[in-house]
């Protein structure tokens, strides 16, 4: 039997973001096929896996840490991953997700569930079923240690490709020269 090559395990996680960073990931287009040959995707919004696995090599995290579920997930990610990459501006700076930080939780909930709703005029109260907002949405590295930061809202496919290839070769991608940008 030929040697089995052990492919690195990669996870992508969607915290408090708009999913735009993941859309940009999908815009890798045909390069996704090449990537599929090189990695095992073990957890992702585009894969039907419920529990974040153990022993992940590389985890890309989209979005700010905006609710208690995100916060718990962030700690699990750190515990179970070798490299954690902040994936996009929301994970790196809070960005659009953190624009709500100047409002109180009550103001936010009223705005979303009362003022802007035309039918069901009630607010959620069972936080065993839905996640509870943290007082502030924060960048990922304010909650857990992060190894590298991929900027942009969203990062471009080329930037994602660069980051993935660096990580797959066991290098921490350095963005402060080539791809450092906000917005």
């Amino acid at each position: 039997m030929s040697d089995t090559i052990i492919k690195p395990k990669v996870a992508t996680v969607w915290l408090g973001g708009c999913s735009g960073c993941h859309m940009s990931f999908l815009d890798l287009d045909e390069r996704l096929l090449e990537l599929a040959d090189k990695i095992q995707l073990v957890f992702s919004p585009i894969a039907d896996v419920k529990v974040f696995p153990q022993d992940v090599d590389i985890t890309l995290v989209e979005g700010a840490v905006t609710n208690d579920e995100n916060e718990e997930m962030a700690h699990t990610i750190r515990k179970n991953s070798r490299y954690v990459l902040s994936f996009g501006d929301c994970a790196t700076t809070g960005n659009v997700t953190a624009m709500r930080n100047r409002f109180t939780e009550k103001e936010l909930i009223d705005r979303s569930y009362r003022e802007l709703s035309d039918i069901c005029n009630s607010v959620p109260n069972d936080f065993t079923l839905i996640a509870k907002l943290r007082e502030q949405a924060t960048p990922l590295h304010h909650v857990i240690r992060v190894d590298a930061f991929l900027h942009g809202c969203p990062p471009t496919p080329d930037e994602i490709w660069f980051a993935m290839n660096e990580l797959l070769q066991g290098r921490i991608p350095i963005f402060n020269t080539q791809f450092l940008r906000y917005g």
Partner: peptide, 18 residues
């Protein structure tokens, strides 16, 4: 923004004040 790139500001460690 240009300054952030020039000085290599990869992330902000301070709490944002909002």
């Amino acid at each position: 923004q240009d300054l952030a790139y020039q000085v290599g500001l990869v992330r902000v460690r301070y709490p944002y004040l909002y």
